[in-house]
């Protein structure tokens, strides 16, 4: 009995070693995923982000068709990188709405003129309130919302061409 507890420190160290070895072998990510996936879109109604296009409300996502909800900003650099990919998806008939975070109308206008406008509606979220309600932690992010307004999928970071098949699959699954 007295002999056994002398080995407890070594056993504890073994435990520590195991945890560290496991932790070292799988690099953990720093992304914080939204816990709202599978839940209904929070109620919101945002004014237009720039003059020519309508604003965005949660009601738009109740029309029976799955839609993409893109969170972007004119001041965000990766958003420029994903713009052509989004445009390509829009050309293929994917309905995309957007929320512009902390943005001024003239900046949104300039951004869309320069990088293309794949969006049907753009709401302006000047103090990130809707972004936080969605559990989104940065720009750009893209959600797949099904026809009944349930959030089905979240993509964090800019959408690269290789990400498109997965997002298309998520859209089909949300049919």
């Amino acid at each position: 009995m007295k002999r056994t507890w002398l080995w407890i420190p070594l056993a504890l160290f073994g435990l520590f070693f195991a945890v560290m070895a496991v932790g070292l072998s799988k690099p953990s990510s720093t992304t914080i995923t939204s816990k709202m996936i599978g839940k209904p879109l929070p109620k919101f109604s945002l004014p237009p982000a720039h003059a020519p296009q309508p604003g965005l409300g949660s009601a738009s996502f109740q029309q029976g068709q799955p839609r993409l909800l893109n969170i972007f900003a004119s001041w965000c650099i990766p958003c420029i990188a994903e713009a052509p990919v989004l445009s390509e998806m829009a050309r293929k008939g994917v309905p995309i709405d957007a929320i512009a975070i902390r943005d001024r109308p003239q900046d949104v206008d300039r951004f869309l003129k320069r990088n293309g406008n794949p969006y049907q509606r753009i709401g302006s979220d000047v103090n990130s309130a809707v972004q936080m309600a969605l559990g989104s932690s940065g720009v750009p992010e893209t959600f797949v919302v099904d026809g009944r307004g349930i959030i089905r999928y979240q993509h964090i970071g800019d959408i690269r061409p290789e990400d498109v098949p997965e997002i298309m699959a998520a859209l089909r699954a949300a049919q």
Binding site: K2, W7, P9, L10, F13, F17, A21, L24
Partner: peptide, 23 residues
């Protein structure tokens, strides 16, 4: 990984020695 390996050798070794000898 290298530091973890050194850690395992030195600390594991010392604790094993502790278990063997301190009694």
């Amino acid at each position: 990984a290298f530091i973890l390996a050194l850690l395992a050798i030195y600390i594991g070794g010392a604790l094993a020695l502790f278990g063997l000898r301190i009694g």
